[in-house]
Design a binder for these strands. Structure first.
Lengths: 301, 301
DNA sequence: CCGATCTGATAGACCCCGCCTATCGAAGCA
DNA sequence: TGCTTCGATAGGCGGGGTCTATCAGATCGG
């Protein structure tokens, strides 16, 4: 039983004429006759009563023809839907983003993405690195913007741009007087994010602290968000290390920013499953973001 | 694009495993792999993301799979419906019957038909011969019970039984005194049905009247139904010639019935289009009616 | 009354395509 | 490292769908 046979059946039912039906189907009349007879044998009933002059559907055929029409319509719907879906640069694109990047990066790239990929409907999803990777693995995300390297061949990653870290200091802080701050100097009273934020580990590594915290609030504060962390710094509770894209927000809060002596920073990458079939969409998204943020190392400050 | 491919797709989506899906479909794993890849190429999109350990439908596939399920369901519905319809002795059977036969024959054969062909749903349709033939030609009837021969190869007819005519007389009529009535004697004051009833022509032919009418009411009465005609005879307005099956009704009305000298009668036939595909049903109906009415010539009176 | 025409059915040949088995390649595991 | 698993690939085979050519029956017009 074949969809083609169904189309033959509908054509004969419509034209009441094997020759014209065959023409409409783009096949020869014998082809259509043979196939319809086979279909009749498979179904075990006569579909058409062949009179000398007319071809009339049997009552059984009329009982079936609704289902036949429906089946063909569904098949056509599949083809039509596939035509809409076949462009890998169209449709929804579920993009995971880490929390220390999302609020500062998204406003910069939303418009360029919409302009460059107008048919791509971006669905951002903010979560920490490990959660994003889990969701990637579970096919709940199409790609993710991370600031860490990803190992294993399951994932493919594309570096987009380098984002320098900056020392964030209260105005009255002694280090604020310097032009450049050494990473190790921050260790004294650095405030860091809660577990799970990659920025926490990167900040601690940069300051030469394997995991133990110094400073007044060290060990007690585990800021849930970069925004909270900045508020604490602005209030004079300590220093921290922020990603470059957050510079504008920090300065607006009255925080003093200084470049780091070792120019420590992180590389923002777009990551997707190696088996992800819409690689073209992922690469296009990465390219647009990279183009917008390239040369950011020489950006603000 | 093929329904089989759709079934493959659904199987892989269900099992998430090519091997098990192939087993469920009754084909080898390479067959299923190749066919699905072809389907993907035809649709121009990836349907499954093949990971090392898992096979996961793409988002495009999930958008399509509803239609796929629907198409397969419709195809299955066609098969199921065909199974129900394929028995030619099942389903509705639209049977035309002439008015001079219907009220007397149907009560006799309804129960036997229901018993012999319990799955056949009889739909009687009462009309005059020519109308029935038109409806047969138009496929609006499956067969018809007629009392005339049908010419032409378009129709096939099966004689069921012979029905003798009887002279119907008012009790006080002079002919009522005789044991047997000659057809020609009825011509004096015979009453006949309206144009279009085959019984009218047969009665006139039997009485040797080509078309002109004698008798008191001749030329003015054109009874619309046999029932009306019998009422007229019972009221003494004239004589008539009735089909044997109407004997009981006539006697109940006080009419005197007499056999005809020449044993004139008519043959009741079942007629259907030669191309009618459910010949088996027609012949079965004819057989049941024939069995019930055979030997009717020696019946009442 | 006999060709011309039209219709669907049939025959025979061809070729694509779906199926199989065998094998590969990569990954995971002991 | 060898074994297992899983999907992809290769090659061969057979069936089935398609074609052209033709037939069979009916209708129509000269």
């Amino acid at each position: 039983m074949n969809l083609r046979d169904f189309r033959y059946l509908l054509a004969v039912a419509e034209y009441g004429h094997f020759g014209r039906a065959a023409q409409a189907c783009g096949v020869s009349q014998p082809t259509l006759s043979v196939q319809l007879r086979k279909l009749e044998e498979q179904l075990g009933l006569a579909l058409f009563e062949r009179d000398r002059k007319t071809v009339v559907p049997t009552s059984a055929c009329e009982r079936l023809i609704g289902h036949v029409r429906a089946a063909v319509a569904e098949a056509d719907a599949i083809l039509a839907a596939a035509r809409d879906l076949c462009d890998p640069l169209a449709g929804t694109f579920r993009l995971g983003i880490i929390p220390t990047l999302a609020p500062y990066l998204l406003p910069l790239v939303f418009a360029p993405l919409r302009e460059a990929l107008p048919t791509l409907l971006l669905e951002p999803w903010e979560d920490q690195t490990l959660t994003l990777l889990d969701r990637l693995r579970a096919h709940e995300l199409d790609a993710a913007l991370l600031a860490t390297e990803v190992d294993g061949s399951d994932f493919t990653s594309q570096p987009l741009f380098d984002e320098p870290f900056l020392a964030a200091l209260p105005p009255e802080h002694p280090l604020a007087a310097r032009e450049v701050v050494a990473e190790s100097d921050l260790a004294q009273d650095i405030l860091v994010l809660a577990d799970g934020h990659c920025l926490r580990d990167q900040a601690l590594a940069a300051c030469g602290q394997g995991g133990s915290l110094g400073g007044a609030l060290g060990g007690t504060l585990r800021a849930a968000s970069l925004s909270t962390l900045l508020s604490m710094v602005a209030a004079g509770y300590g220093t921290t290390l922020i990603p470059g894209l957050a510079a504008g927000t920090a300065q607006d809060m009255g925080i003093v920013l200084r470049p780091l002596r070792e120019r420590t920073g992180r590389t923002v990458r777009l990551v997707w499953r190696s088996s992800f079939p819409r690689r073209a969409a992922a690469e296009a998204v990465g390219r647009v973001i990279g183009d917008r943020l390239r040369g950011f190392a020489a950006g603000p400050i």
